[in-house]
């Protein structure tokens, strides 16, 4: 479990997820990037301007 930096709720990372994968926080809907699997770490994903 990792904590959403936006709302503080726990986000469950699945066993088949990859570093770099973008997931959505079920509570606040913010996009999160998986930066580490062990320990589980996520950060808010902000897309660069095209």
């Amino acid at each position: 479990m990792a904590k959403c930096p936006e709302c503080g709720e726990f986000v469950k990372l699945l066993g088949d997820m990859e570093i770099g994968e973008i997931i959505e926080c079920d509570t606040c809907g913010v996009e999160l990037e998986i930066i580490s699997l062990d320990p589980e770490k996520i950060k808010i994903f902000e897309e660069e301007e095209k």
């Binding site: 088949d16 770099g20 994903f45 902000e46 660069e48």
Partner: peptide, 22 residues
């Protein structure tokens, strides 16, 4: 869909290695 379970017609999302553009 996990990366190791990709099938025909799935949408595959990726980021350029140089920037964070989806």
């Amino acid at each position: 869909v996990p990366k190791n379970d990709l099938q025909n017609a799935d949408l595959v999302f990726a980021r350029s290695n140089r920037n964070k553009i989806m």
